[in-house]
Amino acid sequence: MWDWYYAFEVLPEIASALGVTIGATVVGFILALILGLIWTLLIRSKNKIVTTVADSIVKFIRNTPLLVQLYFIFYVFPQFGLSLDPFTAGVIGLGLHYSTYLSEVFRSGIESVGPGQWEVATALNFTTKKTWTRIILPQAIPPVLPVIGNYFITMFKETPLLSAITLVEILQTAQNIGAGTFRYTEPLTIVGLLFLLLSYPASIALRQLENRVTARYS
């Protein structure tokens, strides 16, 4: 049923694909952070059209599956001459999808900063840019850091979806091994364990951060 020898034999190959998985997570997340902030600012814009368009795009992305978005980027973009390798397509898909969630997080963070802070900034004659960078964001971001961290872990666990657009991350590696040997038990279990091994300590650490944040900000 379970072959330890085989398990140890395939472990290094699967583990070596972790680089791709983690790489996709990190790059995707950076993209999500940047795009998320952009959505938030666009939605807060005074221009009604900009607000409506940005809000609609965010809603559309949020209400459709990541897997289908990945297919769209990977298979449809080339129809318009934009061929992307699986890693790039995957990272764009992840980043775009999670940017809509992070935008929501940023929004709630910004809204939690009281109107008094804006008034103070005006009274002290801050520029709009300085108001954001010196007053609003430094107050808005720390309280929502645990939520942002949670999305990082969630995104990490979603990376196996990139195997569907032929990216050879850890799940695809395990499947390739399984297809060759007709033994899926060990490779697939190892993939599961690797995810658990990385995400569980991360979520414990986040819970501690959350406790610290709650203690400080509420």
Partner: peptide, 23 residues
């Protein structure tokens, strides 16, 4: 809770569909 939250849904799906038959 921790096992199902800590591993990925797609991995769980494959595990149930491809590994359980081995047992």
């Amino acid at each position: 809770v921790e096992v199902f939250r800590g591993t990925s849904l797609l991995v769980q799906l494959f595990w149930i569909y491809f590994v359980l038959p081995m047992f």
